[in-house]
Design a protein around this nucleic acid. Structure first.
Lengths: 159, 159
DNA sequence: GGTGAAATTGTTATCCA
DNA sequence: TGGATAACAATTTCACC
C-alpha cells in the first residue's frame, strides 16, 4: 500500500459512486492502474464492503439508544448464548465487548420509546443480564464510516 | 415507499456493488423501473451516501476506544467550542450527545494506546471537560451500517 | 508499475403498453 | 408504473511500454 492507495481510499470512503475515470484523474493515474489498485485493495481486504448508507429518520428510526450491560456469568457458555441470541436482532446494529466496568455496549435503532421497549424485552430474554443501562442519543454531532488513514503502513518510500 | 423499495434498500445496504440488472431481477422488475426507484430513493434522501467500508486492522487501527465525558459548563458557547474543536479530529469517527448522566459519547479509532494518548491530549485541550472516561473495545461482535427496515412507513397498501 | 485503445458490460433516456 | 430498446458511459481486458 502506498500514498496513492490511501488517496483512493480517502475518496471512496466519502463517495464510492465516483466513476473510475474521475477517481483515476484525482490521483493522477489512468484508469487501468487505478482499477488494478482497487482490485488489490479489495482482494487484500482493505476494502471490505461497498454499501449505501440510509437516513434513519426517513426509515422511521428516530431513536438511537446505547445500551450497556454486564454478564450475569463470565463463562464461554453464557457468552455463546448471549451472542447468538443478540446478533440477529436487526435493531441492534452494533455489539462491542468492552474492557473495564461494563461488559458489552450495544447500539440500537428504533422508531421511539415503545419500539425500544420491545427490543429491550427481547434483549433481556436472551440471557441473564446484570446492570442493564440505557442512554438515549439526543443528537448525532458526527457520524462517519471513514476511518483515519494517517496510520496505515506504507510499503514503498516513494511519496 | 413500498415493499419493493425496501427490498432494494435491503440489498444495497449489504452490497451496493451489484449491477442494476441483478438488482432489478432480485426484486422482480426490469432495469428501468428499478433505476427510477433508486433515483427517487436518492433524491428523497433515504439513500444518503455510497461508500466503501474499510478494515480498521488493515489500516493499522487496532484499537477502538469509547470515550464518555461531561461538559464543564452547560451553555451554547461551550458546546460550540467543543463541537468545532472535536469534529475535525479524524480519529474521532462518532460524536453523540447523550441523555442522562453522560453528556457525550465518542468513538475513537487509533493504532494503539500511545496513539490514543495523543488523541486524548488533543481532546482535553479543546474545551474544559469533566469526568472523561475511556473504555476499550476488546472485540467487535457485530457492526453493521444496515438499518432495520421493518419500521419504514409504506405509502401503498400493495405488498 | 504504467499507458492507450478495444471489447465488454452497465447505466440512462426515449418511447410505448 | 412497468417494460423494451437504443444511445450512452462506464468498466475490464488486452497488447505493448
Amino acid at each position: 500500500m502506498d500514498k496513492k492507495d490511501l488517496e483512493i481510499l480517502q475518496i471512496l470512503q466519502k463517495d464510492a459512486s465516483v466513476p473510475l475515470s474521475d477517481l483515476a484523474q484525482a490521483v493522477h493515474l489512468s484508469t487501468t492502474p487505478c482499477w488494478r489498485r482497487l482490485q488489490k485493495l479489495q482482494e487484500e481486504g482493505v476494502i471490505r464492503q461497498h454499501v449505501v448508507l440510509c437516513d434513519p429518520a426517513r426509515l422511521n428510526l428516530g431513536l438511537t439508544v446505547m445500551v450497556t450491560l454486564k454478564a450475569a456469568q463470565h463463562n464461554e457458555k453464557w457468552m455463546q448464548k448471549f451472542i447468538t441470541g443478540v446478533k440477529d436482532i436487526p435493531e441492534i446494529v452494533e455489539i462491542l465487548r468492552m474492557s473495564g466496568d461494563i461488559d458489552y455496549l450495544l447500539k440500537v435503532h428504533v422508531p421511539d420509546m415503545a419500539g425500544f421497549d420491545l427490543v429491550y424485552k427481547k434483549l433481556v430474554k436472551v440471557a441473564d443480564l446484570q446492570d442493564v443501562s440505557s442512554s438515549f442519543v439526543m443528537e448525532v454531532i458526527k457520524s462517519t464510516t471513514a476511518l483515519p488513514l494517517d496510520y496505515a503502513i506504507l510499503k514503498s518510500g516513494k511519496n
